[in-house]
């Protein structure tokens, strides 16, 4: 995997190569080069299978980590391409022309994280959350607990902590 990384480094600005297992590695690439790197990997290096595309919200760093995971059926190895994009203006090039399922992933990321993929067919159509008014719910600053407390009513309950309860019962005067 390191070899492949070294070869690719000649053409692309890669960074942070991390070999997780002998058959799985991750590396970072600049957002502007990501799609051409993916095309290159698919057409030249046999990474023909797009396993998944997902996003990790690094709220503290104000970044989204897009992860394109590619699989090579010949060498049976996986390469995860990490692309960091600005969380406040999340726009990324689309890969719908490379893999047919790409547009579905991008539609989901648009809905769940609010990332725009200009040119991806139907990217703005709601996928799962028809009629959703709130912010993109998979972002880390969307608090599901607060949302559910506001939206639904709960069966009333009292949680007694053993330590506190024993203090009240046994030695509250101290």
């Amino acid at each position: 995997m390191k070899k492949l990384y070294d070869i690719l480094s000649l053409q692309f600005e890669l960074a942070d190569f991390e070999s997780k297992r002998s058959d799985l590695a991750f590396c970072k690439v600049k957002a502007s080069q990501a799609i051409s790197l993916l095309t290159h990997l698919r057409d030249i290096h046999g990474y023909t299978h797009l396993v998944m595309l997902t996003c990790v919200d690094w709220l503290e760093d104000k970044q989204f980590q897009l992860t394109y995971l590619l699989h090579n059926y010949a060498t049976k190895t996986d390469l995860g391409i990490l692309v960091f994009i600005d969380r406040d203006h999340p726009v990324m090039d689309s890969l719908h022309h490379l893999w047919k399922q790409g547009r579905v992933y991008q539609r989901e990321l648009h809905e769940m994280f609010g990332i725009d993929f200009p040119g991806s067919p139907g990217v703005e159509e709601p996928m799962i959350l028809e009629g959703w008014q709130g912010p993109p719910p998979m972002r880390r600053d969307f608090d599901t607990k607060a949302y559910s407390d506001e939206t639904y009513s709960h069966r009333p309950r009292v949680q007694n902590e053993p330590e506190q309860h024993m203090k009240e019962q046994l030695y509250s005067e101290d």
């Binding site: 902590e161 053993p162 330590e163 506190q164 024993m166 203090k167 046994l170 030695y171 101290d174």
Partner: peptide, 11 residues
């Protein structure tokens, strides 16, 4: 669990 706190004479 905090069971020990109640038993400790000094809590």
């Amino acid at each position: 669990c905090g069971i020990c706190t109640a038993t400790c004479p000094a809590h």
